[in-house]
């Protein structure tokens, strides 16, 4: 299978966007982003996530009110929920951390898809689940776990929220073959 360097470029260029211009996000754009989540790898292909797509400005404003982690004013929201009835129906017991891994893979796909169609997006987890559940009228079987905020990004030179890149080296992250405390894994990259 031929490689696709464009994917690597897209991954490197993606940034969490927090501030947005006034231009609206369309329903089709939201569906493009959610479609990408659908193609994300998921444990056992069970798909226990549900996505609440929000474009109504009043609802977005209300959700922003109970979301300390939302700095800017997005024009669309995708709230990723877990469907616990579906989890139970599938017979999952014990650790359910796998479903949070699935939320992560779906979220990364959505962030990359948003970038691909010219939108900016960012993940937000600092919100009151209880309050968001009320505002979205979620049944008890659904819990909101993460939201992706969407909009047309403010150009980076004027986006006052842009942060310096984290100075983490690849060598700080990678352990080759096995752990060693003598820094034998420090290859200088």
């Amino acid at each position: 299978m031929a490689g696709d360097r464009d994917v690597l470029t897209a991954i490197r260029q993606r940034r969490a966007v927090r501030h947005f211009e006034d231009a609206p996000v369309t329903r089709d754009q939201m569906l493009d982003v959610i479609r990408a989540a659908r193609w994300a790898p998921a444990a056992g292909n069970k798909r226990v996530q549900r996505y609440v797509a929000v474009l109504d400005p009043t609802t977005i404003r209300l959700i922003r009110t109970v979301t300390p982690g939302m700095a800017g004013h997005p024009k669309g929201l995708i709230v990723v929920c877990l469907d616990w009835e579906r989890v139970a129906a599938l017979g999952y017991g014990g650790s359910r951390s796998i479903f949070y891994v699935d939320i992560g893979t779906a979220t990364e796909n959505m962030l990359l898809a948003a970038q691909a169609i010219g939108l900016g997006a960012g993940p937000v987890t600092s919100f009151s689940k209880e309050a968001v559940s009320v505002l979205l009228r979620l049944p008890s079987r659904l819990t909101p776990e993460l939201m992706v905020i969407l909009g047309h990004p403010v150009p980076r030179r004027t986006e006052h929220q842009s942060r310096p890149r984290t100075p983490t080296r690849l060598g700080d992250l990678v352990i080759w073959e096995h752990f060693s405390s003598d820094r034998a894994n420090d290859h200088g990259y």
């Binding site: 009110t65 109970v66 979301t67 300390p68 600092s126 919100f127 009151s128 309050a131």
Partner: peptide, 18 residues
Amino acid sequence: VFDVVAFLVTAASLLPEE
């Protein structure tokens, strides 16, 4: 006032796990 109160209360509920 309402927005800031909502921000502070929801932030307080989240901070123990952040």
